[in-house]
Amino acid sequence: MSSDSNNANNEKLVDNLNVESQEILITPEQLKTALPMSAKAANSIAESREVIRNILDGNDPRLFVVVGPCSIHDVDAAIDYAHRLKALAEEVADTLYIVMRVYFEKPRTTVGWKGLINDPYLNDTFKIQEGLHIGRKLLLDIADIGLPTSTEALDPISPQYMQDCIAWSAIGARTTESQTHREMASGLSSAVGFKNGTDGGLDVAMNAIQSAQNPHRFLGINGEGQVAIIHTKGNPYAHVVLRGGSNGPNFDSVHIELTEQALSKAGAANNIMVDCSHANSSKEPELQPKVMEDISNQIVVGNQSIVGLMIESNINKGNQSIPADLTKLSYGVSVTDGCIDWDTTATAIRNMRDRLKDVLPSRKN
């Protein structure tokens, strides 16, 4: 038997035993060539990143507010929402800087729909290459509207396809502790928020911020889709996002002060973002405006550290399961976490703007 035959037989015994098949994926450069970014979109994205950096540096007194669906499953509804949000953003722009939440990837504790990129047709066909096209086109269309976007950086490969479109990125509670995600965050072009752990503890987020602010070297892919050693500079705009935990909410003034102390101990900037959803609203989406009111009250009485908010919002309230017959999906209703509806969202944001418009400009730089 030849040496080649021996090698082939050995590989059959030990290699890819649980891999059913492999598909060659379009490269990041090929996708960007197929869906190029307009000059208008590029300028919009660059400007939005600069605004967020200025807010984090204390040079812009506004709050930035990441608001939108828990996840995107309907592109038409997402564009509808984006046009509504753009008009509202212009209305409150003197006080609040609005960023649309455009989440394509959903972490799962066990199994379930993993998002538009992984399964764009919501039917377990997993047309990932088509999902990448659909996702990138949506981001470009929203950028052309003039609205900044945010997403969760979950898969370590997908940022090569999408990150050039993103103004702000999140690392979720389940992945903040991951070395892979800390390394990835150190090279992201946008500011990045690390959520506290699912138990509500701050240590993993503090460690993540310190890690992401430093240079790293790790395995990844380049624009041509080749495996490469990625050398990053470190991301100086890594910060914390409070989302509550198994012990309850953590947006109150006591938890905010404890977070300030933890940031100081870690040598990190005193920048805190509050996720009004998840455990901070006790997983009751309709309570999110109450969290916003509390945050406004804290700022009115002198808080200097809260720089941003996250809100889960959609055209219509609540959520729905994905039916076998997709024609039965309700328009503008989340298929993942429940959301507040558009009217509730607009009212809550306007109320926050009215409460803070005369307060934020006097904040210390």
Rank of each mutant, 00 (worst) to 15 (best):
A8S: 14
V14I: 15
D15W: 05
I26V: 13
Q30N: 11
K32N: 10
A39W: 00
S44Q: 13
A46V: 10
V65I: 12
V65Y: 05
H73M: 09
D74N: 15
A77D: 11
A78W: 01
I79A: 09
K86I: 15
A87T: 15
E90D: 15
E91I: 10
A93H: 14
V102C: 12
P107A: 15
I117C: 06
D119Q: 07
Y121S: 13
D124L: 11
G131Y: 08
G131E: 12
L132C: 06
H133N: 11
A143F: 00
I145K: 06
I145S: 12
P148F: 08
S150L: 04
E152V: 05
A153G: 00
Y161I: 05
Y161H: 05
Q163V: 03
W168T: 02
A170P: 00
G172E: 05
G172Q: 06
H181S: 13
S190V: 04
G197E: 10
D199Y: 01
G201M: 03
V204E: 09
N214M: 14
P215Y: 13
E224G: 14
T232C: 08
G234E: 05
P236V: 15
A238N: 03
R243V: 13
G245T: 08
E257L: 12
E260W: 04
Q261C: 10
L263V: 14
L263I: 13
S277F: 04
N280R: 03
E284W: 00
E286N: 09
P289E: 08
N297F: 02
Q304V: 10
T336H: 07
D341E: 10
T347Q: 14
D358R: 08
R363H: 04
R363T: 08
N365K: 15
